[in-house]
Design a protein around this nucleic acid. Structure first.
Lengths: 276, 276
DNA sequence: CCTTTGCTGTTTATGCCGTACACGTAGTAG
DNA sequence: CTACTACGTGTACGGCATAAACAGCAAAGG
């Protein structure tokens, strides 16, 4: 019974019901779970602890939530509702950067977001909204549709990976009372053996580890640069690809340059202009 | 007792001893654990199962290995010994790309590598060798030392993130017998609600999901492009930064252009030329 | 009115997990 | 021979998710 994605869809997209005066409810469970995960991370989130926090037995939760996995899905969509600032206008780069930074900040507040694993999480309305914002930042560009999607996924995964790194170090630091720097500084028995690695030694002597780059800032800048390079390349050949689906255009028979690859694409574009 | 990093260093960097004719040994345990993790993933790796596979009791393992975490460290360094092809010559980009692809292929053979979490894993000799290769690909460039390190980390984390994605989908597909495509294709109850997300709908109608990009290839290309852009920028200002530590140079008093920012840096460079 | 039905929370139990601890046993150095 | 060490074992504890049967209660139907 742990596997009913359609049930998950219903829970995620359900209308918010009013809370009962007493007793459990889905929203109360989700809120308690979010608090717990904020404090102890996703690994520290257990059905027992959530139930304890609410003053009920463990199994009582299962009357409202199909299981732990679904609970995490619900938690995700709950916190993804925060900060609904509408995306500002501007060129694609500033917009995409802003969306990435918002995702980053959100993971600062709820680090467990980056710890969620698995590829079959049904998105709720807020997850889709965030995704749409990211896609929206890139849709105006010369990128092909599949490239827009790939780029959004790339940036999203980057943010998660960096956030994961950060939360892991932070939690370990809090747990052990030893900072990352102190811990690695005490690994003399390791450093004694690193002489015969040339690049490592060179960088060490050059002070490469003295003032490390901010890995989120550095990575984000490289990523945006990389996407920009592709967009520039696509811009150069923009007139040779279908404006709707991005496939390469056959050379036009007549003198007039073609814009769409097929009647279907032209009509799709036209219809959208009417409705949107 | 589970926390003794120096003990981990000793185990990882120990000389390989000859195997006993019978009974357990560290290497036998590590090999069995690798086989198990290859088949069932890191989550499916348990001390019980490793012991069963070897025909011993669970607790016998603890005579040779401090605990599960250390075992994983040992497994990592064991498989990182595979493929010791020396890095080929060439420009930085082809070298870095090749290192990334080797890491990618290795994670194809041992998907659990990407599942390892935590930031305080002591590297063994092979882990350091792989890291040194990646750093080495970038040391010839105009990047500053800290940027070389950041770029290597970025590429490394990218490979891990993509590998993690892949292994998660694959495992889920095998476990459930339903392919990712089929599973998402069956989520009609979800798609019914996605009309009011403009970018998403647009891309959907434009066929963006029909022929998706290969996310590893796409991401790697963008990343390399992004790093290339930075290198080009640094190349332009190469003569204005210290050749040793990369900080900006004060304008020279005399007419002759400066090369190093300080006597210390000049001496470091000189000494390295003598020894290396 | 009483009874039936369904919702909610509880109790108990199963099968995983890592590993602490006390115990045997066999080989070896003194 | 003895004491010591290395190695393997058995038992036990506390943690986890969750299946299954059960109890109370409120609304619905007769």
């Amino acid at each position: 019974m742990t596997q009913d994605p359609d049930h998950a869809v219903e829970l995620l997209w359900r209308e918010r019901e009013r809370e009962p005066r007493q007793g459990l409810s889905l929203d109360r469970i989700v809120r308690a779970a979010v608090e717990l995960a904020d404090a102890e991370g996703l690994a520290g989130l257990s059905m027992r602890k959530v139930a304890d926090r609410l003053g009920f037995t463990t199994m009582s939760l299962y009357r409202h939530v199909p299981g732990r996995d679904h609970l995490v899905d619900l938690m995700r969509d709950a916190v993804l509702a925060e900060h609904p600032e509408p995306a500002a206008g501007g060129d694609w780069r500033t917009r995409l950067e802003e969306v990435a930074r918002q995702a980053w900040r959100l993971r600062g507040r709820h680090p467990w977001l980056a710890e969620i694993r698995g590829t079959r999480h049904v998105p709720g309305p807020n997850a889709v909204a965030r995704y749409d914002e990211m896609l929206g930042a890139l849709t105006g560009t010369a990128l092909r549709p599949s490239e827009v999607i790939a780029a959004a996924g790339l940036v999203g995964r980057f943010v998660d990976a960096e956030a994961l790194l950060l939360v892991e170090t932070r939690r370990e630091e809090r747990r052990s009372g030893v900072s990352e720097e102190e811990w690695w500084g005490a690994r003399d028995s390791l450093y004694d053996r690193l002489d015969r690695y040339p690049a490592l030694s060179h960088l060490w002597e050059a002070g490469g580890w003295d003032h490390p780059e901010d890995s989120f800032e550095f990575g984000l800048a490289r990523l945006l640069d990389g996407i920009e390079a592709l967009i520039r390349r696509r811009d150069e050949t923009r007139d040779e690809t279908c404006r709707e689906c991005g496939t390469r255009l056959e050379p036009a028979d007549s003198g007039r340059p073609r814009v769409y690859c097929s009647r279907a694409c032209r009509q799709r574009a036209y219809r959208r202009r009417q409705t949107g």
